[in-house]
Computed example of a mutant assay.
Amino acid sequence: MYCADVSLVRSAGLQRFRQTVEALGGDADLFARQAGLPPGALDTDELLVEDTAIAAVLETAAAALRCPDLGLRVASAQEMSLLGPLAVAIQNSPSVADAIECTSRYMFVHARDLSLSVVPDPDGVAGVTGLRYAFRAWVRPLPQATEMTVLFLHRVVGFLVGGGYGLRSVDLPHRPVAPVARYTEAFGATVRFGRPAAVLRVPTSLMRQPLAGVDATLRGLALAFLSRQSPGPRTGPAARVRAVVSQSLGTGPTELADVARALAVHPRTLQRQLVAEGQGFTEIVDDVRRARARAYLTTTDMPLAQVSRLLGFAEQAVLSRCARRWWGMSPTAVRRRAQR
């Protein structure tokens, strides 16, 4: 049986990593290379990278910089905008419970094997509920990545309700890697270590709290976009391939075997499914590249060399050849025409 052992997440999870590391005098690019992250992963939100690489770059940098609270520092600098359209849907949810449910349903957009769920209080206290962050059952998350994600979740909840929300305590599954006082400062509550799971213990009443300034139209648009991103089993093979390729450009070769691995099917099986749907794998990759290239060339001023890397091309000359095939003109000409 062909199966996927690698979990992929969006590089948006590393937002503010570069700034945090460089403020500490570190070389963010060096740490990224040591962790096996692709070029550009620290500077764009859209790359699909291995979860182990994100965890590794945090642990590597924390050790090299002798900064045991690096994950907390990165999370403290991150903005809710890193969630992209999901942030729009969350902010415009009718209540906190709706926001959590929305996050849980569309978490796959950022990390397919992460989950956020509402659970009974681990201590069985009446009037208290747990927000549980979990990963694949067979994976033991590393401390820095866990702390970064849980603190970011805490800050998102605070942002939604406009401040403090009565956080009772925080459970983390590992032993403290930084002074305990640092955790208390970051969360503003007691943090307990060596617990069965990562959990924010919150008042049950929080879930019923309505959110202010909700725009139902914006929420509907965001949810419609998110629903189209799902490479789930009810979606046709071509749509699933398109979703994976769209998120994978720039992370390495987007070959049939790589995409099949991400979809947990055998490459030959995926190829047969595409043929049955009247689609070709090479054509899908080309379509995704063309659309992404046009977006980069017409809506940004990033150098052509960087555009080439983000499209997964080995050199800028390949982008030039593709642009002439797609549009009959050079990348520079496409950009100038858009500016005019």
Rank of each mutant, 00 (worst) to 15 (best):
R195K: 03
A257H: 07
G25M: 01
L311R: 15
R335S: 10
T217E: 15
H174P: 00
Q15I: 07
A181W: 01
Q247K: 15
E315P: 08
V180N: 00
V334T: 03
F135N: 13
G158L: 09
L24N: 09
A224D: 12
S104Q: 14
D29L: 07
R219A: 09
V119M: 00
G328S: 12
D121G: 03
D123W: 07
R294Y: 09
T149D: 12
F281K: 10
L151M: 04
I284T: 03
R132K: 13
R18L: 14
A260R: 11
V265P: 14
Q247T: 14
M302E: 15
G40A: 11
R73S: 12
M302K: 11
M302N: 14
V125Q: 12
P176L: 01
S308R: 10
L206W: 00
A305Q: 12
V275L: 11
E147P: 15
V191Q: 03
Q144K: 05
R132G: 07
S169N: 13
L200G: 01
V118Q: 00
V96R: 07
S117C: 04
L142P: 02
F193L: 09
F108V: 15
C102G: 03
R240V: 10
D69Y: 00
A243F: 02
S246L: 01
R261V: 11
H266P: 00
Q273E: 05
A63I: 06
P237D: 02
E46Y: 06
G312V: 04
W138D: 15
G13D: 06
P231H: 09
S248A: 15
T60C: 12
D113W: 09
M80N: 11
V275Q: 14
V307M: 05
G280A: 11
L263G: 10
G250K: 03
S76H: 06
A56P: 12
V259A: 02
L221I: 07
F313P: 02
A61T: 05
L304Y: 08
A314H: 09
G166A: 11
L172P: 00
R309Q: 15
A338D: 10
L42T: 13
L221R: 06
P267T: 02
D43M: 08
A323H: 06
P179H: 02
R140I: 10
R195F: 04
V156N: 05
Q34M: 10
G232E: 13
Q247W: 00
G127P: 00
S104E: 12
P233T: 07
V318E: 15
D171M: 08
A293E: 06
R325A: 13
Y133P: 13
L319I: 01
R324N: 13
A99I: 00
W326T: 15
D258L: 07
D29Y: 00
L172Q: 04
A224L: 07
A222G: 11
L58H: 06
M148G: 05
L274Y: 14
